[in-house]
Simulated scan of single mutants.
Amino acid sequence: MAAVRVVSEVPLASGKGDLFEAFVRVLPFRFMPLWLQLTVLGAIVAIVVTAWSIMRTRKIAARRAAREKADMTADVTVGVKPEG
């Protein structure tokens, strides 16, 4: 009996991986080793996500403060003493 050899035509890398590799190669610090490029890229992504998170948290806090101020103003307008 002869062994049947199955040839898979599935690519080993995805399109996203190819895009990521192309992006890393375009970076201005191509002279650095790949591990350092990826570390710097990861640090940049972490900084962007942290800045977005802080901005979002402050925006939520500002909305909450404005809502509480509006509630206190409404209580005073109606003649109800605010608690606290």
Rank of each mutant, 00 (worst) to 15 (best):
P11E: 03
V24M: 12
L27I: 10
I44V: 15
K69T: 09
E21Y: 05
F29N: 07
S8R: 09
L27S: 13
V49Q: 01
K69W: 01
A61L: 06
R63A: 07
P82E: 03
V10H: 05
R30M: 12
W35C: 02
G15N: 10
L36A: 14
W52A: 14
V80T: 13
A22P: 02
T57G: 08
E9N: 06
A22S: 15
F23N: 08
D18C: 09
M55P: 02
A51R: 01
I47C: 07
R58N: 09
A62M: 13
V45R: 14
F29T: 10
R25G: 12
R25D: 13
D71T: 09
G84A: 10
M1N: 09
M1I: 13
L36F: 06
D75P: 03
V76S: 04
E83Q: 12
E83A: 15
W35N: 01
A3L: 08
T73G: 10
K16R: 15
A51L: 08
A74D: 01
M1E: 02
T39C: 11
T50H: 09
R58F: 07
P33M: 08
A74Y: 00
K69F: 00
F23T: 08
A22T: 10
D71M: 14
G84R: 02
V6H: 07
A22C: 11
V6Y: 06
G15A: 05
D75G: 10
A22K: 11
L38A: 15
I54P: 01
T57E: 05
A61D: 15
T57W: 00
T73L: 05
A62Y: 03
V4G: 00
A61N: 08
I54R: 12
L36W: 06
D71N: 03
I60A: 04
A65C: 06
A62S: 07
G15C: 10
R5P: 00
A2W: 02
M55T: 11
A62F: 02
A61G: 06
R30P: 02
I54N: 04
R56N: 09
A66L: 07
F29I: 13
G84E: 03
R64F: 03
M32K: 13
D75F: 05
V6I: 15
T39L: 15
I47N: 07
Q37M: 09
W52F: 15
L34C: 08
V48R: 05
R25K: 12
T50Q: 14
V6R: 04
R63H: 07
L41I: 04
L38D: 01
V45S: 11
V48L: 04
A46V: 10
A61H: 01
T73C: 05
V26M: 14
P11H: 08
F20W: 02
I47S: 14
V76E: 05
A66I: 10
V78N: 03
A70T: 06
P82V: 14
L12K: 08
A43P: 00
F23C: 12
V78L: 05
V45P: 00
P28S: 14
